[in-house]
Design a protein around this nucleic acid. Structure first.
Lengths: 111, 111
DNA sequence: AGAGCATATACGTGTCAAGGTATATAAAGG
DNA sequence: CCTTTATATACCTTGACACGTATATGCTCT
């Protein structure tokens, strides 16, 4: 999952598909990458469940599937808790600074 | 950034550090990986800004830094909008189903 | 049926990164 | 000092993967 999105071209493709579905040729043109490259990355993305495709005559339309990126999001959850705790600690620290050196301030602390 | 967290051992190390700072030896024992492996991954993590270290006699204590993972989080933002839009669409679809085939249900739709 | 377009796949090549083993650096303690 | 403990680094090997080029598959339209 993380290996999939580690590849810059694949991230570009995903970012492109977030707005709407695209054919291989459209991706090829917008991202200016050779067609086999696009096809190969789309294959990887499809097999990993990041996208799915439907057939439209000779074209294949690829669209995003939410699940894998939701898992990435879920993995981040504990870290989000960590860094919001960090911000809190910083704020408490600044509060102490405020007490020790009472100087004119505009607005601080507005929860 | 994404390359960094693509490596499973590094993700394990990050997950370990989210609770509190750890020395190299503590990581080594808890994750049961050889010491050079731990040191090398920590070096990569440090150079990418995911962790920082302080010296405690012969030990080095590594702790998490929030910024890089926050960037990952930021990259995910557009996709979050995408999949919440998707849930909404699904709900609207189910609402239509409800109207067309009015059958006994326990609880549905409780925003 | 044949030409042309859209997409997929096969194959060869180069690069890079992770792991293992060995060794270096450095501080602590007897 | 010398040994032990803690961590970092060097070197080598191996495997995976991304790319380019060439070719195959498959659909459409005349």
């Amino acid at each position: 999952m993380f290996e999939i999105i580690a590849e810059p071209n694949r991230r570009a493709i995903l970012s492109l598909l977030v707005s709407s579905q695209q054919s291989v040729g459209e991706v090829e043109r917008q991202l200016r990458m050779p067609q086999p490259t696009v096809s190969k990355h789309l294959r990887v993305l499809r097999e990993a469940g990041f996208v799915e495709s439907t057939v439209d005559a000779q074209r294949r339309l690829y669209r995003l599937k939410p699940e894998p990126l939701q898992e990435v999001d879920a993995w981040l959850a504990p870290f989000r808790r960590f860094w919001s705790a960090h911000v809190d600690a910083l704020e408490r620290h600044l509060d102490r600074m405020d007490q020790k050196t009472p100087t004119k301030r505009k607005t601080r602390r507005r929860r």
